[in-house]
Computed example of a mutant assay.
Amino acid sequence: MKILVCDDDPVVINIILFKLQREGFGEVIVAADGREALAQIKINNIKLIITDLQMPFLSGLEIISFVRNNQRYKTPILVMSSEGLEDDVLKAFELGADDYMVKPFSLPELMVRVKRLLRK
């Protein structure tokens, strides 16, 4: 199982990476920007995408749009953002995000949400 974590903050990436690996979620692929995330989506069989909204080159919203507009991908998407603005939340869900968490986040809550999305 491959999980893609997209965030331009190395601290956030390392925290999520450590927790997912410790919980036994298989291979975790990281992307520090939207362009890198898109490349990983195209070449890997990703089972879950965890993405920030604000990233260099391509935003999390653009990632969601690409995945949902391509029939090939049915990947669940969990958005994590420090921006809890209602417009951003609504736009992410309108584009097809499956879940949304505001940073800072709880690691136990993140793990529950990841498990739920992987069961879909």
Rank of each mutant, 00 (worst) to 15 (best):
S82Y: 06
Q21Y: 11
M55A: 08
M1D: 11
L110K: 02
F66S: 13
K74W: 06
I46G: 01
N45A: 13
V12M: 09
D9A: 07
M101Q: 05
M1E: 12
I3T: 00
L58S: 09
V67G: 07
N14V: 04
E109H: 06
I41F: 02
R113G: 05
I15R: 05
D88Q: 05
F105M: 02
E36F: 05
V102H: 02
Q54P: 01
I15N: 07
L118H: 10
E27R: 14
I13C: 00
V102E: 04
G84M: 00
K42R: 14
G26V: 13
L20A: 11
T51S: 15
E36A: 13
C6Y: 05
I46S: 04
L4K: 03
I41S: 00
R22E: 15
D99G: 08
S106I: 01
N14I: 05
Q71T: 15
V12P: 06
E109T: 06
S59D: 03
E36P: 04
D52Q: 03
K120W: 11
F105I: 01
F18D: 15
A32T: 11
E62D: 12
V30Q: 03
L85A: 03
F57A: 14
I16F: 04
E83H: 08
A97D: 01
F66N: 13
L4D: 01
M111W: 10
L78S: 06
I77S: 12
P10M: 08
R72L: 11
F18M: 14
V112A: 14
N70V: 10
V112S: 12
T51F: 07
G24I: 12
P56W: 07
I46N: 04
F93S: 00
G24W: 12
L4G: 00
F18Y: 15
P76A: 05
K91E: 01
N14H: 10
A32W: 07
G84C: 02
G26L: 14
Y73A: 06
N14C: 08
L85W: 01
Q21M: 14
G34I: 06
P108A: 05
E62R: 09
V28S: 10
K47A: 13
E83S: 09
A32L: 10
L110H: 05
D99C: 06
G60E: 10
I15G: 01
Q54S: 09
V28W: 10
V67F: 09
M80K: 12
N69K: 14
M55K: 11
L117A: 08
R68C: 04
L61N: 02
D52A: 04
L118K: 12
E94H: 02
